[in-house]
Amino acid sequence: MRGDKKANNLKGWLYLLPAMLFLGFFMVYPLVDVFVYSFEEGYNSASQTYFGVGLYNYSYVLHDPYFLQALKNTFILVVITVPLSTLLALLISVGLSSISKLKELYQTVYFLPYVTNTLAVGLVFMILFKRTAYTDGLANLVLAWFGRGPVDFIDGPYWAKMFVLCFYTVWVVMPFKVLILTSALASVDQTYYNAAKVDGTSPFRIFRKITLPMISPMIFYLVITGFIGAFKAYSDAVALFGTNLNAAEMNTIVGYVYDMLYGDSGGYPSYASAAAILLFAVVFTITLINLSISKKNVHY
């Protein structure tokens, strides 16, 4: 019996072994290492040497104008796209739940961006918004209908570029939010609605007093994942503005990390690590704030 137990122990670890090897190599070790990197001052990738240990890397990153630009861009992106996409998704999901004809067709169409390569569609958005010598582009054609002058949304003023980035981000994140909210709405117990109808409650009141509280955990889940996702924005910006995001003034925090690591401005894993840890600290703090707010407002 004891031998049997020992064999079971061994077998359990044997089944786990591949997963543990992969996770150990590519997650646990890097997780420790990134903190080590971030404190090693003057680390040189080629010779793998460093001068000392301290907070210089953090100080460098926090004083780097490119990082501050990336921080500003990321915050603007988060503050605009998270509430906007969540509200829009709520509106669409409520509309979607109230119809029965063509519902599946709409659902299928709305989901398409989720399965499309963001780099690929980003290129289409770039073409729609870009102004070249040959054409003002479609976005400017629409602007012209309203008598507004041509704007280059891709290489032009800051607000125009930020507009396209936010617009594209909302377009990309909508499928997930609509899907989650539609299934949340479908799972609300119908008897609540029927009771309210018998009482002659107005639809708006039903929505506020029944629907919203019932799906509030899911809304909250979307807000949290939305914040996290938007803070980690990167490839959408690359798709629109190309790989040199610093030059385009459109870099994000994650973009800054990768630029420090690799490419023309790369070769500084220490700065990259410090920036990545700062990003993680920001995301962690925001998530904690979200959680404490939800305790007061979400009905489970």
Partner: peptide, 24 residues
């Protein structure tokens, strides 16, 4: 214990480990 550790790893964002993986 190992399962709890695995669950804790779910919270680690890819951005944090990609730097060392790149070096590795």
């Amino acid at each position: 214990l190992v399962f709890a550790l695995f669950l804790a790893l779910m919270m680690i964002p890819n951005e944090l480990v990609i730097i060392t993986n790149f070096q590795t």
